[in-house]
Design a protein around this nucleic acid. Structure first.
Lengths: 247, 247
DNA sequence: CGACCCCCTGTCCGATCGGACAGGTACCCG
DNA sequence: CGGGTACCTGTCCGATCGGACAGGGGGTCG
């Protein structure tokens, strides 16, 4: 039947909930609103105190920037965002606590609720999936933590101008994603189950008794699996599936 | 093969960036007068300028500590070690440039050539293999970067007393390693090559012709591979190997 | 020197696989 | 209704696998 495939990717784009978009439509309203100071207000979101301290130390040297808040968790980040409404959020996608996607979810939330806030992802590793997901969720920039300070500062100013700031590597990730069309194996539920049992070293006959189907049917599924994965043996099929994270 | 595109040069140790650090430049003589044990001399080895800056900012607040040098690469670290002979080295195992084991190799080298220097590994992720390797190569401590500053400072003092400083998670890693039998796949070079070809969907015969050995020999290797990986079929062996990152 | 690896090879045999036939049921959709 | 998909089943057969025998040579190390 249609049991939910357990790896649903897109949380439903919540229905229309746009409280005060009209008031924030104009481009540089924030600078006029916070007219008493012309500094870029920045909030740091990173679960590492060391990193926050380093960023604060670096950014506070810049004349036009000002770190107005820090957050170590998503919850703290929400509070800080609501209260401080900074121009820029430096966001580490990997927050220690919570699920793997907590940082990405936070990214979505920020860009949805505070469209005027520029989210610059500043994270440790360059993971293709993370880059693409972050862009999809509204991040305006993506830089790796091992950039030099000058590049980081430059990226912040770029995001503040509502432009995109991606370092060369994350840019190449996006380019590659645009070039390559992802080919979907699209195994059926039954095939997926058979594949798992193959990876466990079971023979066709034992797979059949396990799934209460005949050995012939198992062979039928195995051949379809191999065809879909472009494999010529079950061993290769298991390897390809493992590489793709299917099992 | 690949030239590093954008990070051609890493940031300096900030030569002119610290105008108000007179206290750090002037009283070098005082330090020598009062003896080297007055302050713990520390060298930071981390490829992230942000992290180095954060650590320096945190450690310089401590009365009994003093960051005497920084290094972004293994080569810089060797120079700094030779010249500065610090009491403590804060070492990130993952140095951006070079091989994966560059940090670990550096750890070995330091403890071999300067046994009096305490190496405290300060890295981002908790990888069981890294913890155990670091210990095996002489690291006196292993802490994750998301500890709070007080724990970090405490760990440094612990290492300075020539004691071991491991945070709770790396300690549990070691404990687990001691509990579990050193069950190791330890595939030979030949077996590893055969395994890769199995994963490519090749039959024993084709593997044999590829490696210029007989089909019988291939079967010999395959059976050893399956035995070492605890698999009953080649498909399971490929799956286990793929999970373990062997292929 | 023997002990111990790694690597190599052969034969024999039953179990299993990969593939090609040729069907069936059930469901959804235009 | 036909067409598409997923799922299920059977038979037949050559190729391959997993495993069991029984040996080679070459290397290190105590």
């Amino acid at each position: 039947m249609n049991t939910p495939p357990s790896r649903a990717m897109h949380p439903d784009p919540a229905p229309a909930q746009r409280p005060n978009r009209d008031a924030e439509r104009l481009p540089d309203t924030r600078k006029q609103d916070t007219g008493r100071q012309d500094r870029l207000s920045i909030v740091l979101v990173d679960d590492h105190a060391i990193v926050r301290q380093g960023l604060r130390s670096i950014l506070d040297r810049e004349e036009d920037m000002r770190v107005v808040g820090e957050a170590a968790t998503a919850a703290e980040a929400r509070t800080a965002l609501e209260q401080l409404r900074p121009a820029i959020v430096l966001l580490d996608l990997k927050l220690g606590t919570g699920s793997d996607t907590e940082g990405l979810d936070l990214c979505s939330e920020i860009t949805r609720r505070y469209p005027e806030v520029g989210v610059l992802v500043l994270t440790t590793f360059l993971d293709d999936a993370y880059v693409l997901e972050a862009v999809h969720r509204g991040a305006k920039g993506y830089v790796i933590k091992d950039v030099d300070t000058s590049e980081l500062v430059s990226s912040i100013r770029t995001v503040a101008r509502d432009e995109s700031a991606f370092d060369s590597r994350s840019a190449s990730v996006m380019a590659r994603s645009l070039r390559t069309t992802p080919e979907e194996p699209a195994l059926t539920e039954r095939e997926h189950r058979v594949l798992e049992l193959l990876a466990s070293g079971l023979s066709n006959r034992i797979v059949g008794t396990t799934l209460f189907i005949s050995e012939t049917t198992v062979k039928f599924h195995v051949r379809n699996i191999m065809r879909k994965l472009g494999a010529s043996t079950r061993a290769e099929a298991v390897y390809e599936a493992s590489k793709m994270g299917l099992i």
